[in-house]
Amino acid sequence: MDALEAIAAAVWPRSFSAAVPWLMLLPAVVLVGLLVLGLWDMADGSFRTLDTATFLPSDDYSLANYHRAFTERLFFTVASRSLIGSLIVTAITLFLAFPYSYVMVRTRSAALRKFLLIALFLPFFIGQVVRAYGWLIILGSQGMVNEALGLVGVSPIRLLYNYPAVLFGLVQYMLPFAVLMLAPALTAIPEEMESAAGSLGANWVRTFLHVVLPLAKPGFIGAGLVVLTLSLTDFAIPAILGGGSQDFIANAIYDQFFRTSDQGMGATLALLLVAVGSMMVGVVFALFGAGTLAMGRSK
């Protein structure tokens, strides 16, 4: 032991101990630093237009890409589709996640709690792309749903490659995240609070509205932010369940980078996405606080 301590003292003298917290932050600093480098490179690229003769970025800087992003109909359609879609997905997901988390947290049956937890984690093991393909099998024109409808004499309905299909897939994908973010917030509400509301004269509806909902607010904010940002920036679900007709921003960025090879335009869209996402998070923080993401601090 003494030898080990001597070596440790030689490598890392006690006087360095003040630096230990910074040392622990180092991996995070390196990661974020790399991200900033990448962003810097993209920012540089976003000011260069594609030279259609050589297929190389121009040497001179201009705001042409940004002008296109704000004026061209296609980008406006894609952006509004993503924004509205992510808001709808967030609302539906939170609405569905709350009862799920509530039952999971409050049930007296250990078996039911385990079942709900496993049902929650199972999709994580499958992966997003495989799951999206699963939906193709179920919802396709010769899929299980349409076959079942055929048995009762309904002709096949087009369930895929439209906006609702994408939103449906996103909700299904986001639900576990929302439940995982909500559950700790609900666990933090003592059951005694609900008993107290009951003894004070509140039925379950009013207990829910006046006590549970306000106390679960941090969980809703945390879950809402995670769902909003993840669905705003999602790629696979719009690509697969939208079949190319329901592109979100990430799909448009992909197209610019890898189809038209217009890296400048891709970079522009990517930066705008970062800006919009950050602004939305900022607005939520300003209006409601950081919720569970505040890590228990009020400021």
């Binding site: 003592p190 005694e192 609070m193 008993s195 107290a196 009951g198 003894s199 004070l200 509140a202």
Partner: peptide, 14 residues
């Protein structure tokens, strides 16, 4: 409980 006329002070106050 909410239809009984009972005031209760809870262990952790709630």
């Amino acid at each position: 409980p909410h239809r009984r006329s009972i005031g209760m002070v809870f262990q952790k106050l709630a």
